[in-house]
């Protein structure tokens, strides 16, 4: 598997318990391709949050045919981030190596 895909894998995380604490380590490749992919992910995150803010401010209908496809894409990006970054921390039992 290419290093650039490390970020999409939960096994980038190493999570263990240390007494009453949870110890989480995130190992990220410094390979240029992997760095660029993380940068793109951050871009996607910003784009998604901006879009949601805009929809809320304008009270637009998320089911509007013109917006639906784009919104779905943004939501998928948020899901990717959730899977990779948030889930391992909130559900460490599913992330153990």
């Amino acid at each position: 598997m290419s290093k650039s895909l490390d970020m999409t894998r939960t096994d980038a995380w190493s999570i263990s318990t240390d007494g009453e604490f949870l110890q989480a380590t995130l190992k990220l490749s410094l390979d240029a391709e992997a760095v660029a992919a993380r940068r793109q992910l951050y871009h996607d995150y910003l784009a998604a949050t901006r879009t949601l803010r805009y929809l809320a401010q304008k009270a637009l209908d998320p089911n509007d045919e013109n917006l639906k496809a784009a919104l779905q894409k943004h939501m998928q990006n948020l899901d990717r981030i959730k899977t990779w970054l948030v889930d391992p921390l909130l559900h460490p039992d599913q992330t153990h190596d």
């Binding site: 784009a47 879009t51 304008k58 013109n66 943004h74």
Partner: peptide, 11 residues
């Protein structure tokens, strides 16, 4: 490529 931002600029 983002239709939502295109609409935002139109607004």
């Amino acid at each position: 490529d983002d239709p939502i931002f295109r609409q935002q600029v139109r607004d």
